[in-house]
Design a protein around this nucleic acid. Structure first.
Lengths: 146, 146
DNA sequence: TTCGGTGCAAACTCTTTGCACGACG
DNA sequence: CGTCGTGCAAAGAGTTTGCACCGAA
């Protein structure tokens, strides 16, 4: 019980699937493993490609279906970084964070900032909103590119 | 000259087109008028539909092409509000602002917050980024929906 | 046997592009 | 004329769905 909140992604996913009367198939396992192996913002097709490279063929459709399940159980989240693709990032085990993106090289860093968060809570309150989520993107040119 | 900076969108667009050796056709005029008539986040297809209702038929492709021009000259900007569509909003004559969205009814309000802006400048600096742009989205439940 | 799950291909949605025609200097 | 712009339809890109087969309880 001391381990509450320390479940692995796989365990969480398994619990979620069980609750829905679904099972952790090999394909789903491959997809989730691939997603959580790489700590990076990823696009649906990246997963298909990465798995294909290892000769672990999972149908495109299955990847999409699994992604949807992972979204449903809150393990991953869509992020928009101005690009034209739909990116995902893992949420489990990671504090809420924002993104700072280099418009030149495309590099994305994550950061957290308590002051920013507090201010956002404040704005929500001032607007009579019950805050559920927020996101901040900063765009600029990184040190390397300057 | 006292009017510098008070040009209408149409004038700005016209200037932009001239600079590129392009002209303000009737279709382009219809599209830009439609876009700036409604102060609301809009999607490409909304424009096609709205014009069609007034029997002002402009081909879908032309709308897309005009939108691209308007983006190029900075009159409109893509915004991502978590939806699956590509929305645009006008930037001319509007201060930079952020969005606070109700996840229940989809209502979107705009706000500005100097403290937030200042903090973002600070974060960029701390990360050695030359700041070029930023965006903040707050999601929650609005007063009406509660 | 019964379902859920998978793979494949077709369908769908939004957007872009190729092409021929039309407008305008 | 020569070019730019338009409309149309086809092509693309990413994602979803219908359907037949497969596989575990």
């Amino acid at each position: 019980m001391a381990d509450k909140g320390h479940k692995t992604e796989l365990e969480i996913f398994l619990g979620f699937l069980n609750k829905r009367g679904k099972s952790l198939t090999n394909q789903r396992k491959l997809v989730i493993e691939q997603i959580f192996r790489v700590h990076k913002h990823l696009e649906a097709d990246d997963i298909v490609q990465a798995l294909r490279k290892k000769n672990q063929r999972v149908a495109r459709a299955t990847v999409y279906r699994t992604i949807k399940l992972l979204e449903d159980c809150g393990l991953i989240k869509k992020v928009d970084l101005g690009s034209d693709y739909t990116y995902y990032e893992h949420t489990h085990g990671h504090l809420h964070h924002e993104h700072i993106c280099c418009e030149q090289c495309g590099m994305v860093e994550e950061f957290t900032d308590p002051v920013l968060e507090e201010r956002i809570r404040r704005v929500a309150k001032d607007n009579n909103f019950k805050l559920t989520d927020h996101s901040v993107q900063i765009f600029g040119i990184c040190q390397n590119c300057m």
